[in-house]
Design a protein around this nucleic acid. Structure first.
Lengths: 115, 115
DNA sequence: CTCTTGCTTAACTACATCGTTATTTAGTCA
DNA sequence: TGACTAAATAACGATGTAGTTAAGCAAGAG
């Protein structure tokens, strides 16, 4: 049985924390199709420029996105598309859970209507 | 190119949020080998009872752990071991990142000593 | 040089969450 | 019923983080 050390868990938690913001996930989603400048991301998300910039910084520090400059623009891109596999896995978990809930609710309804 | 809707991203973020606490990851780590009572988890982690109980509640609400009672005890267990695959994936990402940093540092050192 | 543009950073407010202590609830046994 | 144990919840203080506005910085155009 493999286990995790405390130090590792702290780092893993920090990584999850970076992904625990809807806005950051939206940004990653936008960058998924291609690299973008900050302005392009801001426009795509109808967001505040300073806020997007800040989130991009956090993603950059976490090594999830990369940054290069071109003229006065900063261009961000996904460093490792495997990040989306993580999201897919979570989606799967959520889906199975919601399905389980629905089946539970359905059984309740059935029980109710059968009375 | 598959993309995610906003509603999904919000739920995914919430799920990541649950995993974004070292204490909760420690609890999952303890439950990994076998189901445990709250008291057993508290003892294994040298933690505060109320705090552990609260974290277990959050994990329960997220559907990550299950709960059953036996006498006056509450016994918690992992619902889906796939959760550890998520952690493994993050560990891999962290490892590759740390390795990349080390290589970068090494190249700097090399450059420095060569001057 | 200075104006403009694109981006980053600082400062601030509002809100969420962690950990702790104290209290409450639920099951067990004398 | 009353005492005891295990767990959950309430209340509170401390800390962290998202979002906004405003200021600062760097690269190019004129």
């Amino acid at each position: 049985m493999k286990t995790f050390s405390e130090a590792v868990l702290i780092q893993v938690a920090a990584y999850f924390q970076v992904l625990a913001e809807p806005m950051r996930l939206k940004i990653l989603n936008v960058l998924r199709s291609s690299d973008r400048t900050v302005g392009q991301v801001v426009e795509a998300l109808q967001g505040n420029q300073a806020n997007v910039s800040k989130h991009l910084r956090i993603l950059l520090d976490a090594g999830i996105v990369s940054r290069r400059t071109e003229g006065t623009s900063a261009i961000y891109g996904i460093t490792d598309p495997a990040i989306f596999d993580l999201c897919e896995m979570v989606c799967d978990r959520l889906a199975t859970r919601i399905e389980a809930q629905n089946m539970f609710r359905a059984s309740l309804t059935r029980r109710k209507t059968n009375v």
